[in-house]
Amino acid sequence: MRILMVGHYPPHKGGVANHTDSLVRELRKRHEVYVLTYGPIIPRDFERDAVYQVKVPPIFGLRGILFALLAFLKIIKLHKKLNFELIHAHYLGTTSYAGVLAKRKLKIPLIITAHGSDLDFMSNLPLGRYFVRESISKSNAIIAVSHYLKGKALSLGAKRVKVIPNGIRKLNSKKAARKYITFIGALAPYKDPETFIRLAEHFPTEKFLVVGEGPLMDELKSRAPSNVEFLGYRGDVENILAESKMLVVPSLREGFGLVIVEANSLGVPVVGRAVGGIKELIRDGKNGYLFKDFDELVERVELLLDNKKALKMGRIGRRIGERYTWEKVAERIEEVYTEVLGEGHDDSDKHAGRR
């Protein structure tokens, strides 16, 4: 197949970019895969001829709308040269709407993956809701990375949604003593790193690590106790987890929670808030604990500080992590491609929302 991926992609950081990068690497073993992403960027040398960009200003709101329009025009131009068989857009909203416009013009199928904040955040904005609903109704297939997101998509008009979780890349960590309680994620309000800092205050004899960057960085540093270390963004998450007793995920919303699976794959138990996709990844009392409020979080962390309990949960987590390989994820996505291409397509969008 000749496939065009549309959305965030390295050198961009974040969950969607990492997801798309891993999926593209796996699909390229069997298919021609090209990428259209937000510019300005400098593509990596090994794929310089396969990654295209639309340069848009870094202004929230305007950036996405301009991308939708300019990416649509770019797709038309690229299709004349490369003749794509399908478009796979990542993130419901303005990104996927570029695919909607291109599908209407080119009469080729459009698959969209919902990743989380698109349905949790974008769909609540007046204009964003329009882009999300149009994308859902005009797509040939919707993929959601969790059953939680599937429910959101169905509530917004999707007819049928295929749940295919994120995969994890193979992590080869160093051997190290487990000495930290760790937070990994964007330092943004919806990730609730403030609760993690409050937790550090409650356990002054434990060492806490904050891995990530974002708008709350300065504020968190100014009020964090001395037992908290800030590392900023790190690309070697496996080495961070190798030194972690446990991972804490206090997010207020989460479509999937890839770092949970990454932690489990390395034998690290996870304590996560009982919201969104987190509830699907943590089997309470097996590979970690769920919590609803701060008192319950403290209680769960105290339980995990019992080393024997943490080791047992870590072993279970490793077994669970083995199920989330990119080989398996790519195979399931290829099945969606094959099904959509086998249905036949016209400009009536009669297959919208089909698996």
Rank of each mutant, 00 (worst) to 15 (best):
I164K: 04
V56Y: 11
G7F: 08
Y180P: 05
A310T: 10
E229H: 12
G167V: 05
H12N: 12
D347P: 06
A330C: 10
L187N: 07
F60T: 15
Y233H: 07
E201G: 14
I240S: 01
K77P: 14
V275N: 01
S226G: 14
L303T: 08
P189T: 11
V132L: 01
G15V: 01
V268G: 08
R332G: 12
E26N: 05
D218L: 13
S135N: 10
L209V: 06
V228P: 00
I111C: 05
K152V: 01
R234K: 09
L119I: 04
N307R: 13
L297N: 04
A158C: 10
K286S: 08
H12K: 05
I3L: 15
L241R: 02
L199S: 11
F84K: 07
K292G: 14
R283L: 06
I112S: 04
A114Q: 06
L187K: 02
G321S: 01
K308Q: 04
R44T: 15
K103S: 02
R355K: 15
V33E: 07
F131K: 05
L303E: 08
K279E: 13
H115C: 03
L127Q: 09
T195M: 13
F294W: 05
G288T: 01
L119G: 11
V132Q: 01
A89G: 10
W326K: 02
H31K: 05
K29I: 08
E331W: 09
V163K: 07
Y190M: 14
H345E: 07
A114H: 05
K350Y: 09
S22P: 07
R30S: 15
A200Y: 04
L216Q: 04
M1P: 01
I65L: 14
L220S: 01
E331L: 12
L252A: 13
E299W: 12
R198K: 05
K81D: 13
V35K: 04
N166V: 04
G317K: 01
A141F: 05
A310W: 00
K175V: 02
F131Q: 07
K292I: 03
M122W: 15
H88N: 10
P58N: 00
E194K: 12
S265R: 04
G15L: 11
K286F: 07
H90A: 05
M5S: 03
R332S: 03
L82Y: 15
I278F: 11
L241H: 02
E262N: 01
A263E: 00
H345T: 06
I59R: 13
V329I: 01
P193N: 10
N172G: 12
L125C: 08
V340D: 06
R234W: 09
G7T: 13
K152A: 04
D118G: 13
E280K: 04
N307P: 14
G267E: 13
L209K: 05
H31S: 11
H19Y: 08
L154E: 08
G212W: 09
G151D: 04
P126F: 10
L220W: 10
K138Q: 00
F256A: 11
L156T: 00
V336H: 04
